[in-house]
Amino acid sequence: MKNLQQYLATASVAADVFSLRPDYRALLIAVNGITPGPSDDQSEQMLQEAEASARDKLSKQAVTELPHIAAWREAYKSFGAKPNKTRNSLEALTRRVEKGLPRVNRLTDIYNAICVKHQIPLGGEDLDKYSGPPQLIRATGKEHFEATAAGEKVVEHPPVGEVVWCDDAGVTCRAWNYRQGPRTALTDQTTSALFILDALESCTNDNLNAAGDELLDALKRFCPDLEVACRLVSNTEP
């Protein structure tokens, strides 16, 4: 089992990512001791609250005009992605609110609800499946991303310059927060997880920390022995 605080200390964001977006911050939350379980009353209530919050926002602004979604669309353009085709995870989930957010399992439902409610891209990864520390880099074109297409495993190579999360074994998430890979995906057996909350200028550190606090409060309700470590990575971090 990893020492969570020491592990997060090894996480990194490359200088050329900060050059692209100096306002970028990542709140990393690592946890041990998750009790796996199916969707339940708690996760359902959180999803319904998130759906109501998003519907209220969407009654006043188009999805592409919501401040943090708009900021992420600009960030995607900066490394050559087309935001109408490659949608950040926050926008993709917010667009699903009209028909209802997906119900997957308790853990996934909780972090999806917080993503939509707080309007912050939030990814969850199985920490036990990581090889080395999380690293946010700009791709060289040689990195491997294990994906699934038509039921078959395939290997993709993100284009040069794409911003990707990776570990020592390859890419774990394409286009910053667009598409997570199956290798490190959360499952019904996950007991140790890494959560990545991504923020740009329109999202304050207070907003970021409030989302992280709500995530941990929700997890602690059904994981009494939860072990937690947090780190805010930014351009101004010592």
Rank of each mutant, 00 (worst) to 15 (best):
L4S: 08
Q5H: 15
Q6M: 11
Y7D: 04
L8S: 04
A9F: 01
T10G: 03
A11D: 04
S12G: 10
S12Y: 11
V13R: 14
A14P: 04
A14T: 07
S19I: 05
P22N: 09
D23H: 06
A26T: 10
L28S: 10
I29N: 01
A30M: 08
V31K: 02
T35R: 03
S39T: 15
S39P: 15
Q45I: 12
Q48R: 13
E51K: 03
A54I: 03
R55H: 15
K57R: 15
L58G: 06
S59M: 03
V63G: 02
V63W: 07
T64A: 10
T64L: 02
A71C: 07
R73G: 01
Y76I: 01
G80H: 09
G80F: 10
A81I: 10
K82D: 10
P83S: 09
N84S: 06
S89L: 14
L90W: 13
A92W: 15
E98H: 14
L107Q: 10
D109S: 05
Y111Q: 09
Y111F: 14
Y111K: 06
N112G: 05
N112T: 08
I114M: 01
V116I: 11
H118K: 06
E125V: 01
D126L: 09
L127G: 08
D128W: 03
S131F: 12
G132A: 08
G132T: 08
P133L: 12
Q135Y: 11
L136F: 09
R138P: 07
T140P: 09
E143H: 08
A147R: 12
T148G: 00
A149L: 10
A150V: 05
E152A: 11
E152K: 12
K153W: 13
V154H: 00
V155G: 02
H157S: 06
V160Y: 00
V163H: 09
C166E: 11
D167N: 11
D167C: 05
D168E: 14
V171H: 06
T172D: 09
A185G: 03
Q189E: 08
S192L: 00
L197F: 08
A199H: 01
T204G: 00
D206M: 13
N209K: 07
A210P: 00
A218F: 07
E227G: 00
V228T: 03
A229Y: 13
R231Y: 00
N235L: 10
E237W: 02
